[in-house]
Computed example of a mutant assay.
Amino acid sequence: MTTAERSKPTLPDSWVERIFDRMQGLYGSLWVDRWRTGEMVQRAGRQFDQGLLNAKATWAQELGGFAGQPERISRALEACRGKPLPPTLPEFVELCRAQVAEQGAPRLSLAHPKAEARARNMAGVQALIRRMTA
């Protein structure tokens, strides 16, 4: 790992676990089998699949830029509900980015179509009132 990679923010392990749990809930074995290698390693007295550990570490690094904006990750997870296949990491990153673009896009405030007509009418009424009271 380079110095730049170490200084890059990463997602907390608990967040990555929740992402993987949610994806497994949505996609079942399609999700888990995507990462599983069958090579087991022992950590803290427990057995873990090396491929799954590698995938989680990579997701933590690549999604680290969203650590300060958990709502983007949450909305990206919600967007997966309508997708029949689980996203790859690049696809999920794009989902996170798209949520920001969607939420951050400037919204145009359009005047009510009758607003101009109302303004003209009000000006006319006010002019009439001034003439009547003068």
Rank of each mutant, 00 (worst) to 15 (best):
M1H: 06
M1E: 00
T2P: 00
A4L: 08
R6E: 03
R6L: 01
K8P: 01
K8L: 04
T10A: 11
L11C: 07
P12Q: 14
P12C: 03
D13C: 09
D13K: 13
S14K: 15
R18A: 08
I19V: 12
F20H: 10
R22Y: 10
M23A: 04
Q24M: 00
Q24P: 07
G25I: 01
L26S: 11
L26G: 08
S29V: 04
L30I: 00
L30Q: 12
L30T: 02
W31T: 00
D33W: 07
R34P: 06
R34Q: 07
R34Y: 03
W35H: 10
R36H: 02
G38F: 05
G38W: 02
E39T: 13
M40R: 15
M40L: 09
V41R: 10
R43V: 05
R43S: 05
A44L: 02
R46S: 02
R46W: 02
F48D: 00
F48E: 01
Q50C: 05
Q50A: 08
N54W: 06
N54D: 07
A55L: 09
A55S: 13
K56L: 11
A57S: 13
A60S: 15
A60E: 02
A60N: 10
Q61P: 06
Q61M: 15
Q61T: 10
E62F: 04
E62G: 07
A67N: 01
G68W: 08
Q69P: 05
P70K: 06
R72S: 04
R72T: 02
I73R: 04
R75V: 01
R75P: 00
A76M: 07
A76I: 01
A76T: 12
L77K: 05
L77G: 06
A79K: 14
A79R: 14
C80Q: 14
G82S: 15
K83I: 07
L85E: 09
L85P: 00
P87S: 14
L89F: 14
L89R: 15
L89V: 05
E91R: 15
E91W: 15
V93C: 12
C96W: 10
C96Y: 09
R97Q: 12
R97C: 14
A98G: 11
Q99S: 04
V100P: 00
A101T: 15
A101I: 15
E102K: 14
E102A: 09
Q103I: 09
Q103R: 14
G104H: 04
G104C: 07
A105C: 03
L110S: 01
H112N: 13
H112S: 06
H112W: 08
A115F: 00
A115K: 15
A117R: 14
R118Q: 07
A119P: 01
M122N: 08
M122H: 08
M122V: 06
M122L: 09
A123I: 02
A123C: 09
G124R: 09
G124E: 03
Q126G: 01
Q126K: 10
Q126I: 05
L128P: 03
I129G: 01
T133V: 12
T133H: 07
